[in-house]
Design a binder for these strands. Structure first.
Length: 717
DNA sequence: CATCACGCTGTTTTT
DNA sequence: CAGCGTGATG
């Protein structure tokens, strides 16, 4: 028997209450650094101690990293049985359930998962079927299309309605996009495919519609716990509801101030709706922060004070002292990079450990310049976030060879691998796929495709490879070897930077070694892939600086944190009018970033002045930092001056442009927030720009309706 | 089918 | 600038 944990000694009263409260729904509102994961983990220990079988405790969260962290911490608890608790992301739970129950929804249990780039690929193949008028209207790119369809799905809204709300610049083509959504749904059904959104939607449906399955899962998981509840969306909240519907043993933990996944339809209001789903909910607040010093908390509290909607707590700490956070406004990105690396060098010279420092930023590319400087100065670092190992072309190409063996109908992968064969393009690929469907040919007979001539001789070696992969119950390790042998020459031919890519491919070998079934290996690569480049290149973790996106840094902490923040503008001038700033989201991101710091915080803004305006044609300097520096004025006040590019001349294809600051009053007579009057609708407020000559206006005495109106019909008041 | 020149457009975060 | 799609050419 393991040592008993003395809960009263290691937990504060609020935490203790959360840990020891008996069965029934509990909502824990927990500020940053208040020990919320710790509380969850101790509750697990307590339950196991009291005789609950660990497998029947389900720990759910939103990101893989958080899930991993939670399960690791549970496993390290005093009672060794704790390592057997169940858990993972909502998506991985959905996947596990659907592998045995998809049939109840009219799917085969052997469905294939589409990742984001697969999804985009399918969309691309479907666009021609829309029969769009050849020229004219602006139609979104497939990345944007995927965003639109995915978010509409997550919000459970019809595509057209969603476009009206958030992508009003595409209003004219909304019917076509809606149509594309239907085609996409049909395609997935016909080909046994599910994307990420389908996974959770299907689980929701399964639980809502099928009482037997609900009962089965209720029995299996007698205690449900959800971390980062503020990051769940309505569908996931519904899943939680159904999972706990019978036994009501559910604890959700979250912080409304830390909701940073609104782009996935997350809604922090879920936190406050929870008690209406489970009326007998007990609410517990954790407000004591154990991580940061008071000056840092003062900053974060002030940050959240500005939020229009704030529901909860004020963080406090007993950790006195600590320096005030610094804000350093460098003028160029390079200056910023130098400042940070010099500071680090100095600290290291004074005997500090580089492990204690981290640099956080909103988007992965914000650290590029810094990374260059760190490399020059030989400061080792690992970077988390932004890096999509599995979505890079060479990895997808490679894996596609195995995918078609596991699922012969996977057209997306077939096209990938066929097009890699010399002299086979889109046309022939399609023809081959069709032929294979009719003939039910063994894979190795690929070379017998009637259309194959001498020029398509590559089909033969592809056939041989696929034959080998099918011939017996091949192990993933072996399959990876076979494909490597076949694919490396293609890689070298296709990519100039093949050494780097080859190295990345070799990372697949140790991963494959952990599996015995090819199918399982491929599935896991989609849902449980390595979380970052840091996990892949296995840099010297003991002695490195951490670089991370804010999203990937959740749940981690360091004594000293740098935050590189490009706060104000982040849209190229050409799209600024259609995307109002989301200050609420920025504020939450900054809050999350700032509360990662324990002792000291340094914030560095990229340049605010003296950098040329970003233009379509590339002026001097770094485009990103330059538009960041000018767009605030562009967006908020046309009087203070705004971005404008001037054509200077053309010289043999090379163009030279000059940039300047000039009022935009002619083409943009209104700003967000301007009060206007319309002859028919009366007074209103400009809420956003919809098109080059249209704004969206909120009319108070018109039933809160948003209308899109041309500038010429409006009068400023 | 492959290649290249040209023109256009624009965010990011993760499952 | 960079990535993508298009249209012309071999």
């Amino acid at each position: 028997m393991a040592n008993r944990i003395e809960y009263e000694k290691v937990l504060n009263p609020a935490q203790l209450e959360a840990v020891t409260s008996s069965d029934g729904p509990i909502l824990v509102i927990a500020g940053a650094g208040s020990g919320k994961t710790r509380t969850l983990v101790y509750r697990v220990a307590r339950l196991v101690e009291s005789g609950v079988p660990p497998e029947s405790i389900l720990l759910l969260t939103f990101t893989r990293k958080a899930a991993q962290e939670m399960l690791d911490r549970a496993a390290s608890l005093a009672d060794p049985r704790c390592r057997f608790v169940s858990g993972g992301t909502f998506h991985s739970l959905a996947f596990k359930v659907l592998r045995s129950h998809a049939e109840a929804l009219g799917y085969a249990n052997s469905f294939t998962i589409l990742d984001r780039s697969d999804m985009e690929e399918v969309l691309r193949s479907l666009i021609p079927e829309l029969h769009m008028p050849k020229k004219g209207q602006r139609f979104p790119k497939r990345g944007t299309l995927a965003n639109i369809l995915s978010k509409a799905a997550n919000l459970q809204e019809p595509v057209e309605a969603f476009i009206l709300e958030e992508y009003s610049q595409f209003i004219e083509v909304a019917p076509q996009i809606g149509n594309l959504g239907s085609l996409y749904a049909e395609y997935k059904k016909a080909n046994q495919l599910m994307d990420y959104d389908d996974l959770i939607i299907s689980l929701q449906r399964l639980l809502g519609e099928n009482k037997d399955i609900r009962t089965e899962l209720s029995r299996k998981y007698g205690h449900i716990m959800v971390d980062e509840y503020q990051d769940t969306n309505a569908i996931q909240a519904d899943i939680v509801k159904w999972l706990a519907y019978d036994h009501r043993n559910v604890m959700v933990v979250g912080d409304d101030a830390q909701s940073i996944y609104s782009f996935r339809g997350a809604n922090y209001r879920n936190m406050f709706d929870f008690p209406s789903i489970f009326p007998e909910t007990k609410i517990i607040k954790l407000e004591q922060n154990y991580r940061s010093t008071q000056p840092i908390l003062a900053l974060t509290n002030a940050l959240m004070d500005q939020a229009d909607e704030k529901y909860t707590k004020c963080l406090f700490t007993e950790r006195g002292g600590g320096e005030k956070p610094k804000v350093i406004d460098t003028r160029t990105e390079h200056e910023q990079a130098l400042l940070i690396s010099n500071y680090l060098k100095q600290q290291m010279a004074e005997g500090q450990s580089i492990n204690d420092f981290a640099v956080l930023f909103r988007a992965a590319y914000h650290s590029f310049e810094l990374e260059a400087e760190l490399t020059r100065q030989r400061i080792p670092y690992v970077k988390y976030g932004g890096f999509k190992f599995l979505e890079s072309a060479h990895i997808k190409d490679f894996l596609a060879h195995m995918r078609v063996v596991v699922n012969r109908d996977e057209a997306i992968s077939w096209i990938r691998i066929l097009r890699l064969v010399k002299n086979v393009g889109m046309g022939k690929s399609q023809a081959i796929i069709k032929w294979m469907k009719n003939e039910q040919t063994p894979l190795q007979q690929l070379a017998e495709w009637p259309g194959a001539g001498r020029r398509e001789s590559g089909l033969k070696s592809l056939g041989i490879l696929l034959g080998r992969l099918t011939s017996r119950e091949i192990e993933p390790k072996n399959a990876v070897e076979q494909v490597m042998e076949y694919y490396l020459p293609i890689l070298k031919d296709k990519f100039d930077d093949y050494p780097r890519r080859q190295k990345e491919l070799e990372q697949l070998v140790p991963m494959a070694n952990r599996y015995r079934k090819l199918r399982r290996f491929l599935d896991d690569l989609v849902l449980e892939p390595p979380t970052s480049s840091a996990d892949i290149d296995q840099g010297e973790k003991g002695k490195t600086l951490t670089l991370s996106t804010v999203h990937s840094a959740k749940g981690l902490e360091w004594p000293v944190v740098f935050i590189i923040w490009a706060m104000e503008g982040r849209f190229p001038a050409s799209m600024a009018y259609s995307n109002p700033l989301n200050l609420e989201e920025e504020r939450r991101l900054m809050y999350v970033a700032a509360t990662r710091a324990k002792d000291q915080l340094l914030i560095s803004y990229p340049g605010q002045e003296s950098v040329p305006v970003w233009s379509n044609y590339g002026g001097a300097g770094n485009g990103l930092s330059s538009f960041i520096s000018t767009l605030p004025s562009y967006l908020f006040s046309h009087e203070r001056g705004a971005a404008k590019t001037l054509l200077r001349g053309r010289k043999r294809g090379k163009r030279q442009f000059e940039t300047s600051l000039e009022p935009r009053s002619r083409s943009y007579p209104f700003s967000q927030g301007d009060r206007v009057r319309h002859p028919a609708f009366g007074p209103g407020v400009v809420s956003k720009f919809v098109a080059s000559n249209k704004v969206e206006v909120l009319f108070k005495n018109f039933g809160k309706k948003l209308l899109h109106l041309e500038y010429t019909t409006l009068e400023k008041i």
